[in-house]
C-alpha cells in the first residue's frame, strides 16, 4: 500500500518519526518551560532538562501503594505504548508513512483515549482521594471534549472524502487555497481548544500546580515514582508532541515529504521540528497570559469548541 516508495525509505522515516517523538516530546516540554520562565523574568532550567530528569528517574526504584493491583504498574507502559503506535502511523514526516493507509484520524483519537482511560484507572487504583479526584475530573473533561474533537475531525475529513490523515495532508498540499476556507479556520480553533484540554495545559489544567483543589492531571500521577514516573512523564510529553505535530500537519502541511528523496526527508524533519517548536512557544506565551479556568467553567469552553466544530462542518457544505 505504500505505492512507489522504497521499503528502506519508509522504514527509515518510521524510525525517525518514533525517535523524533520520543526525544522531541521532552525537549518540547523543556522549551515551553523555558519560554514561560523567561516571560516571568526567571532564567529557568535548560531546554534539555526534562531529558536529564528522565535519565535520573529511570534509574530510581519503582514503588506501588499497598492497595494497588497490577493495573497500577501496567498503566505507564500502556500510556507510552499507545503514543508510540500513533507516532508510528501518523504522517508526521511524509505523506506516505509505513502504515499510512491505516492512519485514520478517528482511530488515532481512540488510541489516545486508551491512554487517557489507562491513566484514570491507574489513578483510581491508588486508593486515595487524590487519584479519584484527578480521574473523575480528567474523564469528565475528556468526555466533554470528545464531541468537539470528533466533529472537528469530521470537518477536516469531509472535503477530503476520507478520514485518512495522509490523504487529508496530501490533499491540502495540492489544494492550498483550501487551507484558508472558513471550515478550516473554525475547525482549527476547535482543535486547538481540544488539544489544550486533552494535554492538560492552561487554562484547563495547570501542569505545574500541586495545589489539591486545582489538580487534575498531576493528581492522577502522584503515586508514581522512579522508572514508572519517567514513563508517565515521557508519555505525557510525547502525547503533547504528537498532538501538536498532527495539528501542524493538518493545518500547516508545508514541508511534509511528498517523495522518498533524502532531501525531502531532511526538509520534513526541519519543518516539523520548527512548526512544533513554534506552536509550543505560542502555547507557552498563551499560558503565561491566561489564568486557569474554574473547573465548572471548562465545559463552557468545550461546548464553545463543539459549536465551532459544527459550524465548520456546516460551512464545509455551504462553501465547498
Amino acid at each position: 500500500m505504500t505505492g512507489a516508495w522504497p521499503v528502506g525509505a519508509v522504514a527509515a522515516i518510521s524510525v525517525l518519526q518514533v525517535l523524533g517523538v520520543v526525544v522531541g516530546g521532552p525537549l518540547l516540554v523543556g522549551l515551553m518551560r523555558k519560554v514561560r520562565c523567561r516571560l516571568e523574568g526567571r532564567v529557568g532550567p535548560p531546554v534539555h532538562q526534562p531529558l536529564l530528569d528522565l535519565r535520573k528517574l529511570a534509574r530510581r526504584e519503582r514503588t506501588r501503594p499497598d492497595q494497588a493491583s497490577w493495573i497500577f504498574s501496567a498503566v505507564p507502559v500502556v500510556l507510552v505504548a499507545t503514543t508510540l503506535v500513533i507516532a508510528l502511523v501518523a504522517p508526521l514526516l511524509a505523506t506516505d508513512p509505513a502504515f499510512g493507509w491505516s492512519a485514520d484520524l478517528f482511530a488515532l483519537v481512540y488510541l489516545l483515549l486508551v491512554g487517557s482511560v489507562a491513566l484514570a484507572l491507574g489513578a483510581l487504583d491508588t486508593g486515595t482521594a487524590f487519584g479519584g479526584m484527578g480521574a473523575s475530573r480528567a474523564m469528565t473533561i475528556g468526555a466533554l471534549s470528545e464531541p468537539a474533537l470528533l466533529v472537528a475531525v469530521l470537518a477536516l475529513s469531509v472535503p477530503a472524502h476520507s478520514s485518512n490523515v495522509p490523504t487529508i495532508v496530501a490533499r491540502s498540499l495540492t489544494h492550498p487555497a483550501w487551507l484558508a476556507t472558513p471550515q478550516r479556520l473554525l475547525s482549527l480553533v476547535a482543535f486547538l481548544i481540544v488539544i489544550v484540554a486533552e494535554s492538560g495545559r492552561l487554562p484547563v489544567d495547570n501542569p505545574s500546580t500541586h495545589l489539591e483543589l486545582t489538580m487534575i492531571h498531576e493528581a492522577m500521577v502522584l503515586e508514581y515514582a522512579g522508572a514508572d514516573l519517567a514513563l508517565v512523564k515521557l508519555g505525557e510529553s510525547m502525547r503533547l508532541a504528537v498532538l501538536l505535530a498532527l495539528f501542524a500537519d493538518l493545518f500547516v502541511p508545508w514541508g511534509v515529504a511528498t517523495g522518498p528523496g533524502i532531501g525531502h526527508v531532511v526538509v520534513a524533519v526541519v519543518a516539523i521540528a520548527a512548526k512544533v517548536a513554534a506552536l509550543g512557544v505560542a502555547l507557552a506565551v498563551f499560558e503565561v497570559a491566561v489564568a486557569k479556568l474554574r473547573l465548572f467553567r471548562v465545559p463552557e469552553l468545550l461546548a464553545g469548541a463543539f459549536v465551532l466544530a459544527v459550524l465548520a462542518v456546516v460551512s464545509a457544505l455551504v462553501v465547498p
Binding site: 493495573i71 484514570a120 484507572l121 474523564m139 470528545e146
Partner: peptide, 18 residues
C-alpha cells in the same frame, strides 16, 4: 463515546480497583 468511557472507568475503577 466519551460518557461511556467515563462510565466504565468508574465501574471498573471504583468497583475493582483501590
Amino acid at each position: 463515546g466519551g460518557l461511556t468511557a467515563l462510565t466504565f472507568v468508574k465501574a471498573a475503577g471504583i468497583g475493582l480497583l483501590g
